[in-house]
C-alpha cells in the first residue's frame, strides 16, 4: 500500500491534530503523542489511535498526534480521515 504524508484535525480545544508519514514495510507504527490531558488519558488515547489505524489498514507509518482534549469519537474521526487521506482514498 502506498502511503502519502497526510494530516487531519486542528489544534483547537477538544480537537486533535493527526499526521501520518510513510515508514518502511515492517517498521510498524511509530506513534508520538502530545496531549493536554496526557497524564489522565495518555494510554487510552494511544490505544484508540492504534486501533483506528489498524481498522483502516495502516500497518507501517510514523504518526504524530497533538491532542487538545478530544474525546474518543473525535480522535477516531481524525485518525480515520488522516488514514484515508494518506491512502489517497478521498
Amino acid at each position: 500500500m502506498i502511503i502519502n504524508k497526510a494530516y487531519a484535525g486542528t489544534l483547537e480545544s477538544s480537537d486533535i491534530f493527526v499526521e501520518i508519514e510513510p515508514a518502511d514495510e515492517g517498521a510498524g507504527i511509530e506513534l508520538k503523542l502530545t496531549s493536554a490531558v496526557y497524564k489522565q488519558f495518555g494510554p487510552q488515547i494511544e490505544e484508540v489511535i492504534l486501533e483506528t489505524l489498524k481498522a483502516n489498514g495502516i500497518e507501517d507509518a510514523k504518526v504524530t498526534a497533538n491532542d487538545r482534549g478530544a474525546v474518543d469519537c473525535t480522535i477516531r474521526a481524525r485518525v480515520e480521515v488522516a488514514a484515508l487521506r494518506a491512502k489517497g482514498e478521498v
Partner: peptide, 9 residues
Amino acid sequence: DSARILVRN
C-alpha cells in the same frame, strides 16, 4: 471528508 466523518462519529 473530515466533517462528514466527524459528524458521523
